[in-house]
């Protein structure tokens, strides 16, 4: 049963990802991406990572997708007809490199005996466990992320504020 759900979700995720690339209409692409994100959230749930699953839906399927849709509508990218690249060969090199990369990673996984699955207690992946980790072990990186966020915010202001 577990396996059947996994393969089902994985299939949906892959089909969604492929659809994102192959749709000509940018709007459809964005919607296909939402499907992928939901399937991924399902996979997280299966790993008992409830918090990650919920955050994934709220942040990616919610906020980021809305941002994508806004951009698509604002720039009126409903259909991509113009060929942006003058050099077609680059496309094929990119495909080659991508497939090669996927092949290497897949073959690597095939060759490796993966470590045994961890203990599957009910506590795993809950907000409680995560919070404890975040404020004990990972307190320092957590605090330092604030420097990262502040740098990003300042950056947005530096780049976009109109000069007086």
């Amino acid at each position: 049963m577990d396996q059947a759900i996994f393969y089902g979700l994985a299939l949906i995720a892959i089909v969604g990802a492929l659809a994102t690339i192959f749709f000509r209409n940018a709007m459809y692409s964005v919607l296909a991406l939402v499907v992928t994100f939901f399937a991924m959230a399902g996979l997280y749930l299966q790993l008992k990572a409830e918090f990650v699953a919920v955050v994934h839906i709220i942040v990616y399927a919610g906020a980021i997708m809305v941002l994508f849709l806004f951009v698509v509508m604002m720039l009126n990218l409903n259909s991509v007809n113009t060929i942006i690249r003058s050099n077609v060969n680059i496309k094929w090199i990119a495909v080659l490199v991508g497939v090669g990369m996927a092949g290497i990673l897949g073959y690597g996984t095939y060759l490796t005996t993966l470590p045994a699955r961890g203990v599957n207690s009910t506590e795993n992946g809950t907000v409680k466990v995560l919070g404890k980790m975040l404020f004990n072990e990972y307190l320092l990186p957590f605090e330092l992320t604030s420097v990262l966020l502040i740098a990003t915010m300042v950056g947005v202001i530096v780049l976009t504020k109109k000069e007086e």
Binding site: L140, L144, L148, A151, G155
Partner: peptide, 19 residues
């Protein structure tokens, strides 16, 4: 001394540079 720190450090180094 931890990959998470390494990553956070790299991002804090890079993002200001982009700007």
């Amino acid at each position: 001394y931890n990959l998470v720190m390494f990553f956070v450090g790299l991002e804090i180094l890079s993002i200001p540079l982009y700007i």
